[in-house]
Every structure is written in structure tokens, then in C-alpha cells.
């Protein structure tokens, strides 16, 4: 409560920047703006934002390049603003270190929800027990409870669920899942991932948590609204 969170908007559209500023400021953010990639990078250095909103189509450089330059020195969460039908670009950005994305035209409510999720994850709250819906996962005991009852999972299913719960609400690309759970050589074995996700979904069917697939991009763990 001491200092308001700082957000940096890197987008070349004045109207959009103004709109985003309005929406963010009503939620108590301190907002900074940059209208191109170079300025965005220097603003990121000076303002030390807590979260960055980055448009992929910038006049001076590719949004992904900006992202790569950012990731050279900071882990500040980045939310990508993109248009539809750029699945490959989105996946590339996510794999270069972006934390999530929203597609234009987006709803303000969704944007703000995403911002909250990626900031929460940025804080290294390494609690030994993760919670989502009626699920709780004890990292130290490697134990999963569903409504207080122990849930039997295979080692792979456990690793999958742990990854999803650690990133609850946030998109994880298929490649990220594969390399995290199966190791770096398994990046092109997506078909196995499908099988395990199906099994896992069956086991956590009544936990109030769902593993959503975003075609062409990846997975997101969501707590169902009651």
C-alpha cells in the first residue's frame, strides 16, 4: 500500500495509450507511456515499472525484439497486446519471455485480470503449498489433495499439475510445458502431452479447476466461476 504499482505502456497508438492509462489509473496504477520501442526500453530502465504492456507492432522495431532486449536484464512481467491471427507471433513472444497476451479488441476487465495474475506470479511467493479451487498441492511432500482427500497421480501428471498450479491463470505454451515436464528433447512430442492432459482432466474433473487449451498457443489453468 506504500507505493502504487507502476505500469509502462509501449504502444504507438495515442488513443489506445490514453484509454489504457484511464483504465489503469482508476485501478490505482502509476502509468508511464512510450510510443516506440527505443523509448520504451529507456523508460523501462528509468521508471522501473512493475508491469509492462507491450504492443507487438511498433514503428521502429519488432515488439519481440523489445522483449528480448528487456529480458536481457529484467524479469519484469510483460503483457503482450496483439491482433488476431498472429498465433505464431504470439507463441514466439511467449517463448521469448512474455508472460501473457490479450488480443485486440480486448475487454478492459480481462486485461486487468491478466495484469493481476502475472504480477502475482512475479512475486517470489514460494509457499510450500499451492491452492487452486478445491485443489491443494504440497511442494515439499509432493502431495495433492482434492477437497481434503489425497489424489493419486502418476509422476508425470504431478509435474504437469504442479506446473499449471504454479502458473495458475497464466498462459503456458505447449513447448514450455513439454520442456519443463519432459525435458529439452521433448519439444516436438506434443501428442503425448495431449494424452496426459486428458488423463489429468479426468482426475481433477470436480475440483472447480479446469485446464483450458488455447488452440495453437498453449494451456491455461483456470478456476471456474461458481
Amino acid at each position: 500500500m506504500s507505493t502504487p504499482p507502476r505500469a509502462l505502456i509501449i504502444d504507438d497508438e495515442v488513443q489506445l495509450r490514453r484509454l489504457l492509462r484511464l483504465a489503469l489509473e482508476t485501478r490505482g496504477y502509476e502509468v508511464h507511456e512510450a510510443d516506440n520501442g527505443a523509448r520504451g526500453l529507456s523508460e523501462a530502465v528509468f521508471r522501473k515499472p512493475d508491469v509492462i504492456l507491450l504492443d507487438l507492432g511498433l514503428p521502429d522495431m519488432d515488439g519481440r525484439q523489445v522483449l528480448l532486449r528487456l529480458r536481457e536484464w529484467t524479469e519484469t512481467p510483460v503483457l503482450i497486446l496483439s491482433v488476431r491471427d498472429q498465433e505464431d507471433v504470439k507463441v514466439a513472444a511467449l517463448e521469448s519471455g512474455a508472460d501473457d497476451y490479450v488480443t485486440k479488441p480486448f475487454s478492459t476487465a480481462e486485461l486487468l485480470a491478466r495484469l493481476t495474475v502475472i504480477q502475482r506470479r512475479a512475486k517470489p511467493a514460494e509457499t510450500p503449498v499451492l491452492h487452486a479451487g478445491r485443489l491443494s498441492l504440497d511442494l515439499s511432500q509432493r502431495e495433492v489433495l482434492l477437497s481434503g482427500e489425497p489424489l493419486r497421480l502418476t509422476p508425470i501428471e504431478y509435474s504437469l499439475l504442479r506446473l499449471f498450479m504454479q502458473n495458475s491463470g497464466k498462459i503456458i505454451t505447449q513447448k514450455q510445458v513439454l520442456t519443463t515436464v519432459w525435458g529439452p528433447n521433448a519439444a516436438d512430442q506434443a501428442q503425448y502431452l495431449r494424452v496426459y492432459v486428458t488423463h489429468l482432466r479426468k482426475k481433477i474433473a470436480d475440483s472447480g479447476v479446469e485446464i483450458r487449451n488455447e488452440p495453437g498457443i498453449g494451456y491455461r489453468l483456470q478456476v471456474r466461476a461458481e
Binding site: 484509454l19 491482433v83 491471427d85 485486440k104 478492459t108
Partner: peptide, 24 residues
């Protein structure tokens, strides 16, 4: 296509977000 798409969607986004803002 990309640039046309960008040009059309940016104002739409603004309209959409503004309407939402007003409604909220």
C-alpha cells in the same frame, strides 16, 4: 493485410474499451 488489420482494429479496440469504461 497486417497493416489494414491494425488500422481497423485499433479504433475498434478504443470504442470497445470506452463503452466498457462507461458501462462500469
Amino acid at each position: 493485410l497486417d497493416s489494414v488489420s491494425h488500422e481497423l482494429k485499433t479504433p475498434l479496440t478504443v470504442i470497445q474499451a470506452s463503452v466498457e469504461g462507461l458501462a462500469s
